[in-house]
Simulated assay, not measured.
Amino acid sequence: MIPLKRPKAPANLEKRLAVKSKSLTENYADAKKARDAWKGARAVRRDLKELLASMAAGFVRCMYCGDSLGTDIDHFKPIARDPLSAFIWENHFLACSHCNSNQKRDQYPCNHSGECLLVNPSREDPYDHIRLNLPTGKYQGRTEKGMETIRVFGLSRPDLELGRAHAYVRCESMLRDWSTRIENGREDAANTVLRSLMVQPFADVLYAMIKKSDAPGAANVFEADVLAALKSMRNKLETQDVMDSFQNP
């Protein structure tokens, strides 16, 4: 999971969402009414999905696991918990069917103060709550919110961990390739490698590598040439918006 920049909804879509939300409020909609309204809003769902696809990292991947195709619109705060938020743009994420239907479903854990215990990647940096063990591909929760996020979205699924571990090996190789092309003055070829690194399922792994490269003890985590490439890439990305780089490879 990586942080995501949420674009502003186009005026026409924003207006239609507001009309739908107003209707739910005026009709004191319960979960059933809200779900029926959501299922009946085919054009709105189509446009929302298109907007969410532009917000995803890489090729329309799930915003939670980052591995599978984002096929579903997930209500971060489930309709069962808050029917009136069914058409709120900020409550929508693109998810794969496994994360949405098999894992999260209507789960929305909160602490005793009512604060949601799921990382919202469009409002906070998941890295503050979840750390990636690069060689094993395992996510480790640093906070209660991080641990609940891993549990609810099933981010410790064996296939995901194996995929992230293999992606780490490929990222190391691609970073070396990127650095060599830069040194040889092959800027266009280097940018091709960089764009490939920044799409899922590499994005989660590369983002964790970039974060770790600036932390104490980085020299004990990465081989010297990989660390040098990461620092060089970090400097390059700091000349632009890093999240724009991940979301618009």
Score class of each variant (00 low, 15 high):
His166Met: 15
Gln103His: 09
Asp177Gln: 13
Leu48Ala: 02
Pro249Thr: 05
Asn111Asp: 15
Leu24Tyr: 03
Ser245Phe: 09
Pro121Asp: 01
Gln240Cys: 09
Asp106Lys: 07
His129Arg: 01
Ser179Lys: 12
Leu118Thr: 08
Ala31Phe: 02
Asn191Met: 13
Val242Gln: 02
Gly141Asp: 12
Lys15Met: 05
Val119Met: 00
Ile88Asp: 10
Asn133Phe: 12
Cys96Met: 07
Lys231Cys: 14
Cys96Asp: 07
His75Asn: 02
Asp244Val: 12
Lys77Phe: 03
Lys49Gly: 02
Arg81Trp: 05
Leu162Ile: 15
Lys145Gly: 01
Glu124Gly: 01
Ala228Thr: 10
Pro135Phe: 11
His98Val: 13
Asp36Cys: 05
Gly58Thr: 01
Ala41Lys: 09
Glu183Cys: 11
Leu69Tyr: 13
Gly141Asn: 10
Lys32His: 07
Thr25Ser: 14
Asp241Pro: 04
Leu24Trp: 03
Asn133Leu: 15
Ala80Gly: 01
Ala37Glu: 03
Tyr139Glu: 08
Val119Ser: 00
Cys171Pro: 06
Gly154Phe: 13
Ser54Leu: 11
Ile130Asp: 00
Ile79Arg: 01
Ala31Met: 03
Asp225Pro: 07
Pro7Glu: 07
Glu238Pro: 04
Cys96Thr: 09
Leu132Arg: 04
Gly185Thr: 12
Cys171Gly: 06
Tyr139Pro: 06
Glu144Thr: 10
Val169Ala: 12
Ser68Glu: 09
Asp225Ser: 15
Lys8Asn: 11
Ser101Val: 15
Arg46Glu: 07
Leu69Val: 08
Ile88Phe: 02
Asn91Lys: 01
Pro249Phe: 05
Leu227Lys: 12
Phe87Ser: 06
Gly114Ala: 07
Thr71Asn: 03
Arg164Gly: 06
